[in-house]
């Protein structure tokens, strides 16, 4: 469970989040909102990439201000552009990067890498240069590089923005099948239709917090 207590954050003079009090316990949570509404800042707070100026973010009782490293083992993060997330030159090396950081033995690293490559049909690309993959394959690699670390929660920051329809569907399916809790920031409303809960952000506040059938309709009306 992730809890936010009275969380506020500013960029310079501009408030981006104001007084958030939330408990996130559902398996599929969607975050929507206009540009600059604070949703990406909210996402970065959840695994300690950003520490709130005021208030507290607790992941299973651990405070992101004090226990950022332990929290990052629990909360994975998939960025919007996979090119900004792939760290090492080949697929296999990139998948192993996080596992080496967790100090796992080489045999365990190899087993986990093989399993995740098989899961997403990337076995043939194991030794492939990552920059030569297609956009969809890169996003699957980005997801795999997080999944291979076996986090309990995965935060996605607009994961389908750069994908075509086929790859969007592929990624949506992958998210749907995840055993982990997924918190997905997205403008792609189709992706979020079967989620358990939707948070609608506006000017740094959650203005609607409901099931998709209610919250997404409210969001569409808000944007009209």
């Amino acid at each position: 469970m992730i809890r936010l207590h009275a969380v506020s954050h500013h960029f310079g003079e501009r408030p981006v989040l104001e007084g958030l009090d939330l408990t996130l316990s559902e398996r599929r949570i969607a975050v929507v909102g206009g540009n600059g509404s604070g949703k990406s800042t909210f996402a970065r707070l959840l695994n300690g990439l950003l520490v709130p100026e005021r208030g507290q973010v607790l992941v299973e009782g651990l405070d992101t201000r004090k226990d950022a490293r332990a929290i990052r083992r629990k909360v994975g993060f998939v960025f919007q552009n996979p090119d900004h997330q792939i760290v090492l030159p080949t697929v296999e090396e990139d998948l192993a990067f996080g596992l080496k950081n967790l100090k796992l033995p080489p045999a365990d690293i190899s087993t986990r890498v093989t399993a995740v490559l098989r899961r997403y049909g990337l076995e043939d690309f194991r030794h492939h240069p990552a920059h030569l993959l297609s956009g969809g394959q890169k996003q699957l690699l980005a997801l795999s590089s997080v999944l291979v670390m076996e986090p309990r929660y995965i935060v996605f920051d607009e994961p389908t923005t750069l994908l075509d329809l086929r790859n969007k569907r592929r990624l949506a399916q992958a998210i749907h099948e995840l055993p982990q809790t997924a918190i997905v920031v997205s403008h792609d409303l189709e992706l979020l239709r079967d989620f358990d809960r939707v948070l609608v952000f506006d000017a740094g506040r959650v203005v609607v917090d409901d099931v998709p059938s209610v919250a997404l309709d409210a969001y569409v009306r808000m944007m009209a």
Binding site: R44, L49, R69, R72, R73, F79, D83, H84, V87, N101
Partner: peptide
Amino acid sequence: RTADTLADAIDARCFDPEEPS
């Protein structure tokens, strides 16, 4: 700009320069 995001991505994957791998 990419360097900023990449630094976040490296942090998110538990890189710790103080600990030898």
